[in-house]
């Protein structure tokens, strides 16, 4: 059995001594912050260096250029297709409107003729007039 086991007060004293509050040395916070900043910038430098080293490789440069060129070509073709589709759609719309105008005008002509007949009949043939369904 040790001496501290024998006397519990000794344990408490030992713990108190070990865990007693001590103020940080002067400039400790500043040192910690400076260290952290240094570490961050070092990581960033390493990252940018790795990107630069990748881009500086000819293969990657050509691949990037090819990707941009292909994107531009695909975008251009897509835009051109859209433009062509829109032009064809507009032409179809004009055709549709023309067809409806012609149909409308011919229906108007038919109605006009029927109305002419209806208005002229009471004078000429009043006895023959009979109610008929209108179109």
């Amino acid at each position: 059995m040790t001496e501290t086991n024998k006397n519990p007060n000794l344990i408490e004293d030992a713990l108190r001594n070990a865990l007693h509050r001590e103020d940080a040395p002067e400039g400790f916070v500043l040192q910690v912050l400076a260290r952290a900043e240094q570490q961050n910038s070092a990581e960033q430098d390493a990252q940018s260096a790795s990107w630069l080293s990748m881009i500086s490789q000819p293969l990657v440069r050509w691949a990037a250029l090819a990707a941009v060129s292909i994107s531009l070509v695909i975008g251009g073709v897509h835009y051109r297709n859209l433009q062509r589709q829109r032009a064809e759609g507009e032409a179809a719309k004009q055709q549709l409107m023309l067809a409806l105008r012609i149909a409308g005008s011919k229906l108007q002509l038919a109605k006009e003729k029927v109305n002419e007949i209806n208005t002229s009949r009471p004078e000429s043939q009043p006895q023959n007039r009979s109610p008929r369904s209108r179109s």
């Binding site: 002419e116 007949i117 208005t119 002229s120 009949r121 004078e123 000429s124 043939q125």
Partner: peptide
């Protein structure tokens, strides 16, 4: 239309 004097059709 106003009434026509003769039948047209």
């Amino acid at each position: 239309k106003p009434q026509s004097s003769k039948p047209l059709a």
